[in-house]
Amino acid sequence: MTRPVLTIENLSVDYLVDPPVHAVKDVSLTLRRGEVLGLAGESGCGKSTLAYGIVRLLKPPAMITSGRAVFHSPEGHDIDWGDLGPEDLRAARWDKISMVFQGAMNSLNPVISIRDQFEDIFRTHRPALRRRERRDRCGDLLERVGVDRARLNSYPHELSGGMRQRVMIAMAMALEPQIMIMDEPTTALDVVVQREILREISRLRGELGFAVVFITHDLPLLLEISDRIAVMRQGEIVELGDALDLYTDPRHDYTRQLLASFPSLTGERGSFVRGALDDRLLALDAIDAGAAKETS
């Protein structure tokens, strides 16, 4: 087995209010280079808190109380995320691990143009880059996610929800990070757009080889795109395994419940999750194909 890209050891996050709330309890994980790790669980189970804890974006009173997250660079250095000083931490963010948030509606700054929001990244992390190169790269990134480069001059409110999320993904790729954390990136989108975005993510991952931590409550969706899946409940990882194993042979009761809670299109509750999902996706693919034929 190759060297992992991220190791989380016994990470705990508490909300230090009275009484303290243990949001993440003693979580250990390894993220392999280039894999898609799904993180599933109901709302409030701590999956987002875990993700924010990895990059230390937690706001007080939330606090990492024990454990650590270590990033392994391809050159063989280990970076303990918790040991970084403020300046190093800032420099490491987005460069090593970037993020795509839920609700693309609000994760872009409404009053400055898409171009400026792209260029902010390069100006901060790649100050040596010339203006010309910077511009070109921003355009290339947008085209990479299937958005016209003329859109650089747009403001967020001029873009559709799906387009904003594509822009967000393009930004996340800007510095070619090893890891991308995606927190419910498709939840606010309708099913067709959701499908397109997922396909885009899979394609880009294939081309660029970054690892993805994909957080969602939609287990069937994870089964479709993930290599491995971790199921979280009340701050703990109750089951972690290959996507296929988890589906065919769930060990933990809670995983079984989760799987059963998604109704299949064919009627029987939970019995044909995979099949039903495939039907849904096939139907969508058919629509896409039809649309492509019409435009050509």
Partner: peptide
């Protein structure tokens, strides 16, 4: 801040 705490 996170999706979970926003709800709270």
């Amino acid at each position: 801040m996170t999706a979970d705490t926003v709800a709270l």
